[in-house]
């Protein structure tokens, strides 16, 4: 890993405007990471039709993820899962005024170029789709559109950030309706960060090697006590209490994939999860919004899934 070529995020964040007038500049790292900051405290919902997208927006989603099938259906269908039809993505973009994200396969930089050409607001380089490259993730630096990527631990998060990701989500295990992997990955990242905070500076080099991440980013995480970009939770969130628990564990916001539109009453559940995410520290609100929601999605026991069906192990 060439740590020396990684641009310092600190310099990207720290510029101020005193003195001479500077030229306007589009798609800076600050505007890319900044959109993720605007999504904080919110819920990003998977939608497969323009009608779903409107329901999500009306329920208070801060963004939607446009795709042909929710992860639970991708899991059930098998085969190769690819980027969605641009026609569907454009119809969803037309239907709502909130940001629209879309997924491309890990390493499939041309799918990403297509999504950028469509004008989506964020690209999710996602393990939910079948990976296109088993060795390389997309070099995200040259793109004008920002990327969000999944991680299971701090090293994976920092590798994605070094490639240019402006937002991170913990992976969880998508399409299961089972929060156990989301918890595992969030706790792992938080634990890795706490370890760094207690580590003397001269041990950061070896720690960077252990994490497989650039030492500059490792040092920045130590100083900040958190990732240098926004980190959401994902992969298995199905109830308002799931969302609130992930927020209490340190997530900046919540992705809900199959959990809403695979439930009995998506509209009510969507509204309830939005409220539980805002009032994540207020059990009386979580109790109130959880009443009479109908059945949650059925869900899967992750421990009983065969290894080849796990999505979180895709990517490195």
């Amino acid at each position: 890993m060439q740590a020396g070529v990684v641009p310092s995020l600190r310099s990207a964040w720290g510029r101020t405007g005193c003195g001479e007038m500077q030229e306007p500049e589009k798609a800076t790292f600050r505007t890319k990471a900044g959109l993720a900051q605007m999504l904080k405290g919110g819920v990003i919902m998977d939608v497969v039709t323009p009608e779903h997208a409107k329901i999500a927006e009306e329920a208070g989603a801060c963004a939607v993820m446009a795709l042909e099938r929710v992860p639970a259906d991708i899991r059930a269908a098998g085969g190769v899962a690819r980027m969605s039809d641009p026609e569907l993505i454009l119809r969803i973009m037309d239907a709502v005024s909130i940001p629209v994200m879309a997924k491309c396969r890990i390493g499939h930089f041309v799918e990403a170029q297509v999504l950028e050409a469509l004008g989506v607001d964020y690209i999710d380089e996602s393990e939910v789709l079948t990976p296109a490259d088993e060795a390389h993730h997309i070099d995200k630096q040259p793109f004008k559109v920002p990327f969000v990527c999944g991680c299971r631990d701090l090293g994976e998060a920092l590798r994605r950030i070094s490639e240019g990701a402006a937002m991170i989500r913990t992976k969880g295990e998508a399409g299961t309706g089972n929060v156990v992997e989301a918890v595992r990955h969030m706790r792992q990242v938080m634990d890795d960060i706490r370890r760094l905070q207690n580590m003397p500076d001269d041990e950061l080099y070896a720690e960077a090697k252990r994490l497989g991440a650039p030492v500059e980013l490792v040092r920045e995480v130590k100083d900040l006590g958190r990732l240098p970009v926004v980190m959401f939770t994902a992969g298995g969130i199905a109830t308002p209490a799931d969302a609130a628990m992930m927020m209490q564990l340190g997530a900046d916001g919540v992705f809900v994939g199959s959990g809403i539109f695979k439930s009995e009453d998506p509209e009510r559940r969507a509204r309830a999860i939005v409220k539980a995410t805002t009032y994540y520290n207020d059990p009386s609100v979580i109790a109130e919004v959880s009443r009479g929601l109908g059945d949650a999605m059925r869900g899967l026991d992750v421990a009983k899934l065969p290894e080849q069906e796990l999505l979180a192990t895709r990517g490195w």
Binding site: G17, P24, A27, R30, T31, G34, K144
Partner: peptide, 9 residues
């Protein structure tokens, strides 16, 4: 959209 986001003095 987002790709048009920018910074200016």
């Amino acid at each position: 959209r987002q790709i048009d986001s920018f910074e200016a003095d």
